[in-house]
Design a protein around this nucleic acid. Structure first.
Lengths: 145, 145
DNA sequence: TCAAATAAAGATAAAAAACTCTTTTATATA
DNA sequence: TATATAAAAGAGTTTTTTATCTTTATTTGA
């Protein structure tokens, strides 16, 4: 198990792929995205439907249709994707799974995990979806395998 | 979904509970542990069987039997529990789920996640199982709810 | 206005994780 | 040595996550 669910990993990779692939206009279809990020096509379709409903990506049906990301969405933080898919448990939940863990009723690792969770949150909040287009364009980073 | 699997959360809480409860000798039974950390009894039994096989906790059967943790085991790091249950994926895996993500073939968030994963690893390596007996004894920290 | 393309939606299936119940084995002690 | 106790082991079941397949709705453009 990673930090995120598999669904969320696919979501982030797909969003990066769409951002990169449509940075100079146009749209990209689900098949090409699935191949591009090495994910199951129909499962990814479900995920993108959801992200589309939530306004994190945009889509149009029909010939020449597909997914894209508008200017406003490119400015949104990665945290928006993670919250949409996995909720905010990763930012707020107790590392030991205790529901009522808090400052006044802390688990033994409360402060240590708070620190780590805050860093994850900060990283995902400060980083925008649009930031990676360049790197991916240049082939510096990978989205598959 | 938290940082760890539910199994791993139960494992850590149970180990803390046993360490605390048997710090002045004796053993503690599965029922008492399950109540003490608010976990399903039989499921926890499976988890402790596994930890016992791996030598992270000790056990004896029969009357006055139960679980305890010997001196050597108390010195082991929390990372030993996590690795036993969840493997080391959390320390080494790619945040975006890419199998071949590495320094030479990095995902877009490779360095950011490496940093966070290293911190988690360091936290769990530097912290020993025995460290929390005191806090729990004093009621400073919680292991249930 | 019809056909083709494409995402959306719905229904189902497979795999993994979480949880439960029953039987067996080891140990203490009466 | 018989009995009771407690963990170990085995064999399920349920729930959640991940994945697939089919049908429907929307859009374009010939």
């Amino acid at each position: 198990m990673g930090i995120f669910s598999k669904t969320c990993e696919y979501a982030i990779r797909a969003v990066f792929f769409i951002a990169h692939r449509t940075s100079s206009g146009g749209r990209v279809g689900i098949k090409e995205i699935a191949v591009g990020i090495d994910s199951p096509e129909h499962f990814l379709a479900k995920i993108l439907q959801d992200l589309s409903r939530r306004g994190i990506v945009q889509s149009v049906k029909g010939p020449n249709g597909g997914f894209y990301i508008d200017e406003d969405s490119l400015k949104r933080p990665l945290a928006a994707i993670v919250e949409a898919v996995d909720g905010n448990g990763i930012f707020t939940g107790c590392g030991l799974g205790l529901k009522q863990c808090s400052e006044i009723n802390p688990c033994p690792l409360h402060n240590e995990f708070k620190n780590i969770r805050n860093q994850i949150h900060h990283l995902l909040e400060k980083t925008s979806i649009g930031e990676f287009k360049g790197d991916i364009n240049l082939g510096i980073t990978s989205l598959k395998r």
